[in-house]
Computed example of a mutant assay.
Amino acid sequence: MAFRSDEDKVAYWKENLSLLVKLLIVWFVVSFGAGILFVDVLNQIQFFGFKLGFWFAQQGAIYVFVALIFVYMAKMNALDRKYGVNEE
């Protein structure tokens, strides 16, 4: 379960950090953007009987966070297979 070369190790971590940055940007936009910055605009839209901005601040962000965990898991499993460091 070792990297084939030092270049593979560097490339693996670059791709890993790139994925993390992208997911953190989504996390920030959903939590801070939808829950705080754009709450007034989003509150003009009803979602399941609640104002959308309120819903994102209370529940929507949590659903997105859980989805991000599964996205990260799937992408990292694919990355592990690509570089031959998967546990299977």
Rank of each mutant, 00 (worst) to 15 (best):
Y63P: 02
F47G: 07
F65D: 12
G53S: 08
I25M: 11
A74V: 03
N77L: 07
F32R: 05
K14H: 14
N77T: 02
V21K: 10
Y72Q: 00
S18A: 13
Y12R: 14
R81V: 01
L19A: 04
V39H: 04
G49V: 10
K9W: 13
K51S: 06
L23M: 05
K82Y: 13
Q44N: 15
D40P: 05
F47I: 13
K51P: 05
W55D: 05
V39L: 03
A67R: 00
F28D: 01
Q46R: 15
L37K: 03
V21E: 03
F70G: 08
W13K: 06
L68V: 00
V29F: 05
K51L: 10
K22F: 04
E15F: 05
G33W: 09
G84E: 11
G49M: 10
F32C: 09
M73G: 04
V21N: 04
E87G: 11
L42Q: 07
A78D: 12
S31W: 00
D80K: 14
A78P: 03
Y83V: 10
G84P: 00
D8F: 12
I69Q: 03
F38I: 12
K75T: 01
N86H: 15
M76D: 02
Q59T: 14
W13H: 13
D40A: 14
G35Q: 01
G33R: 02
Y12M: 12
Y83D: 10
L52Q: 11
G33L: 06
V21P: 02
N16Y: 10
L37E: 01
K9Q: 13
G53W: 06
A78W: 02
W55N: 10
K14Q: 15
S31F: 01
L37N: 02
Q46V: 09
V66S: 01
L20G: 13
G84K: 06
A34G: 02
G35D: 00
F28Q: 06
G53R: 03
V41S: 09
V64C: 09
D80H: 15
G53D: 01
F32V: 02
Y63S: 08
L19R: 05
W13E: 07
Q58E: 14
D6A: 07
N43C: 09
V30H: 04
L23I: 03
W13M: 11
F54E: 15
W27E: 09
W13S: 09
N16L: 02
A57E: 07
I62N: 12
K9C: 11
L20E: 05
A67I: 01
F56K: 11
Q46H: 08
L79G: 04
D80F: 08
Y63M: 07
